[in-house]
Design a protein around this nucleic acid. Sequence first.
RNA 1: GACCCCUUCGUCUAGAGGCCUAGGACACCGCAUUUUCAUUGCGGCAACACGGGUUCAAAUCCCGUAGGGGUCACCA
Length: 480
Amino acid sequence: MKESKRLTMTVVTRFAPSPTGFLHIGGARTALFNYLYAKHTGGKFLLRIEDTDRERSKQDAVDAIISGMKWLGLDCDGDPISQFERAGRHAEVAHDLLAQGKAYKCYCTPEELSAQRATAKAEGKPMRYNGMWRDRDQSEAPDGVDPVIRIKAEQTGATTIEDKIQGSVTVSHAEIDDFVILRGDGTPTYMLAVVVDDHDMGITHVVRGDDHLTNTFRQMQIYSALGWDKPTFAHMPLLHGADGKKLSKRHGALGIEAYRDMGFLPEAVNNYLLRLGWSHGDDEIISREQAIEWFDLGDVGKGAARFDMDKLTSLNAHYIREASNDRLTDMTWPFIEEKLEGKTSSGGRDWVLNGMNSLKDRAKNMLELAESAEFYARPRPLEMNPKALKMLSEEGIENLKQFRAILSDVTDWTGENLNATAKQFGEDAGVKMGKIAQPLRAALTGTNVSPGVFEVMSILGKTESLGRIDDALNAQTLNN
RNA sequence: GACCCCUUCGUCUAGAGGCCUAGGACACCGCAUUUUCAUUGCGGCAACACGGGUUCAAAUCCCGUAGGGGUCACCA
């Protein structure tokens, strides 16, 4: 019965970050997997902000998380839920448990407990609350202490969960103490809040980092006491830095917006994150649509993965090549305008757009793309970088001058024809192509690296091309 | 320390007892193409942590060992 019900039940997943900072790359991966699983099953993907710790929760962080998810295209169903705002409900559940005798008030002070903990640690024993108030009469309660509410955890037996990723995992109840569910000030602890919220939100699949795996067994105690259905769990392996150590804020974990600022495209980040821990045979380039179709929790690996910038970069280069010229130009142009302080040539934007096909083959990220596109937008006369200057040696200038003369008579100003013209000139003059193309490149772009010079000339058009060549010839004549 | 999880090329991974003299991708190294830089194509280097079992047969199953990670709060 239960099984058939589950089969037809709509899947509901959630991403539940705490707003203590930016959306870091590991969190983004968790969000992605939750999103993908929900979409794969035709279910819902919800966002819950775990902001019960008022000291550490910041509105800035909430905004950063939401904008990061938006950038990645991980849209959640419905409005984000604030856990803090549900504190009343959490307290209600705790008191319910209290009334049913499944939880009890504990009057130990934090000081007493930390003293106990210190002793336990000194003796090399694990700190577990000893249950001193579990069966103690309330009349013995000391004055002036706000009690916490602790759950009456099972003391014998064990709990086994069938984790979708980790498989069957069992923990003995001897490992679980009567932990606090409601603090002295009446606010819920994380353990209570997650369980109540996941239940109330109708979460069917809890997909989270495996740092929560052992917590799950504590949460199971709450589910049992409440008599609630338990969701299916899937604990995904954590992300490590390039050195194999856990990724943390002070250790290589950057906010998702940092990757955007480094010039990564969201589809590249998505594809990269997807392949970290999940795979579908030998497939590497996987679109969002394809990912939704293929993704399943059973295909997630168990081992932790290291973050590899090189692979992300290569994926990014791939997606830049796939992106439309319009989109790339829209993204690139603001960088160019800023760099040139608004002083761009009038045809600049069109030239960048028209040259995009070959510019994008050469870029690993958007910053590089903007940089390599810049020469199209620079106003005349172009500044020459040192290597360009070197190509405009006496010999280079001489070749350029001769070729310039031929160029003025060219009417069919296409890359193809310009190329053929240069070849012919080279043969006639006994000059190698490189000796013609390199000085030309310098004159046209001010640099030593660019797309094919004849393509550049055709995009720039005859007037601009000849103008740039003349600028170079004049400048060198003055210098020499 | 206790408990839990993990372990295939440098990295991400394929692999669900014979198809594996272990496949793909990134990185790296060659070669080809070439007006620079890229792209592209081809080729190369390179791994089943270790030790015991089980089996006709193990990267795949079992048990140890080692290494790595996680959790042990009135944080989330």
